[in-house]
Simulated scan of single mutants.
Amino acid sequence: MATRLRPVSVLFKYLTVCNASKKCTVIGGSGFLGQHMVERLLDKGYSVNVFDIRQGFKNEQVQFFIGDLCSKKDLLPSLQGVNVVFHCASPAPSSDNKELFYKVNYTGTMTVIEACKEVGVQKLVLTSSASVIFEGRDIKHGTEDLPYAKKPIDYYTETKILQEKQRMGHVQEVLKANDPANNFLTVAIRPHGIFGPRDPQLVPILVETAKSGKMKFMIGDGKNLVDFTYVENVVHGHILAGEHLQKDSPLCGKAYHITNDEPIPFWAFLTRILIGLNYDAPKYLIPYWLAYYLAFFLSFLVFILGPLIKIKPTFTPMRVALAGTYHYYSCERAKKDMGYKPVVSLDQAVERTIKSYSHLRRAS
């Protein structure tokens, strides 16, 4: 009798392992990237938990956990029985709240690592940023082997670097936390220029800038190539990483660039979005060096007047660098190690994005 039941018990054990491997938590799952990730994971048959500071959408297939990322007590219930965690929580890069950047991107990530280890989560996939190697100078076909920026372009980037790398006296950062001996594996995904439907940043800000008449000038000669990455491709890269992250796999403790693999002139991309929504494209050129020094002077002025007048400049050296330099990245490592290939072309992505923002179209 026992011999007859053995195949059944083996099958039950196999199915239990399979079900566990398909259970995941998306930290920051109520955000732009997080929601797209949740939807794709559900399509692929995953059981999904969402941990966030708020519930950003309704879905009966998802179990929501609301709490503070820096509280291990809040985090632990969302990680029970989970095999893989996708950590994509982060404040918007356009924010100037340094305290929040450090709290979420660094302190919160340390808490995630501790909580994952405590409950036996096997895999952690971090959403990092390609900007961790960008210092405001040209990068062409940038690889993951380039060093971290010694002078990050902003504090957001500085805290993203802290997520990935090891600092003196600390051993818990994501890539250094990779520990195959104790069955805890980590990988960092570095997207660049994420855009797509429901994006609260790029397209809405671009439209507001155009409405205010501030999109008449193009910085530089308009030839600088930049990566813009459709959100579905970013999601695809994360899920591939989670599925390929195994003991002795090349992904362990590594960072991977994920882009559309179609660098495009920065101003050509913005022009396509603007014209698609019936706004005028930039017409006039400002030399890069002139724009940079004007922005630098303005920032210095704001610093001097800061104690007297509260001003938040939008024309900054960092934004000038992003608009006027080459910065695009190689996906060869992701292609080789996890079979990454964009699932949506740039043309399709721009078309879908413009269609999704038809409510922002300017009346003729």
Rank of each mutant, 00 (worst) to 15 (best):
G108E: 03
G108I: 01
M110L: 14
T111A: 15
V112L: 08
I113G: 09
E114P: 09
A115R: 00
K117R: 13
V119I: 14
V119M: 06
G120L: 12
Q122W: 00
Q122Y: 01
K123W: 01
K123S: 01
L124E: 12
V125G: 06
L126V: 08
L126P: 00
L126M: 12
L126N: 07
T127P: 11
T127M: 12
S128K: 05
S128T: 12
S131C: 15
V132Y: 01
E135A: 04
E135G: 09
R137Y: 10
D138E: 11
D138W: 02
I139N: 06
K140E: 15
K140P: 01
H141L: 11
G142A: 14
T143H: 01
T143I: 04
T143Y: 00
E144F: 00
E144A: 02
E144G: 01
D145N: 05
D145T: 08
A149T: 03
A149C: 07
K150G: 00
K150W: 00
K151I: 14
T157D: 15
E158P: 04
E158G: 10
E158T: 14
T159L: 04
T159K: 03
T159E: 08
I161T: 01
I161Y: 01
I161A: 05
Q163Y: 04
E164R: 02
E164M: 05
E164H: 01
Q166R: 07
Q166T: 12
M168E: 15
H170Q: 12
H170R: 09
H170I: 14
H170S: 09
V171N: 10
Q172H: 11
Q172A: 13
V174H: 00
V174C: 02
L175R: 05
K176N: 15
K176G: 14
K176D: 14
A177H: 06
N178A: 14
N178I: 11
D179C: 08
D179R: 04
D179P: 03
P180M: 09
P180E: 08
A181Y: 05
A181D: 15
A181Q: 14
N182E: 14
N182R: 10
N182D: 15
N183Q: 12
F184M: 01
L185I: 02
L185D: 02
L185Y: 04
T186W: 00
V187S: 01
V187W: 00
I189N: 09
I189S: 04
H192E: 13
G193C: 11
G193F: 06
I194R: 00
I194H: 06
F195Q: 07
G196Y: 03
G196V: 07
G196R: 07
P197T: 02
R198F: 11
R198V: 09
D199F: 09
D199W: 11
P200C: 11
P200F: 05
Q201Y: 08
Q201S: 14
L202E: 13
L202Q: 13
V203W: 06
V203Y: 09
I205M: 12
I205E: 14
I205A: 13
L206I: 08
A210R: 04
A210T: 03
K211G: 13
G213Y: 03
G213T: 06
M215T: 09
K216Q: 13
F217V: 14
I219D: 07
G220M: 01
D221V: 06
G222I: 07
K223N: 15
N224E: 15
N224A: 15
N224W: 02
L225C: 13
V226L: 10
V226I: 10
V226M: 11
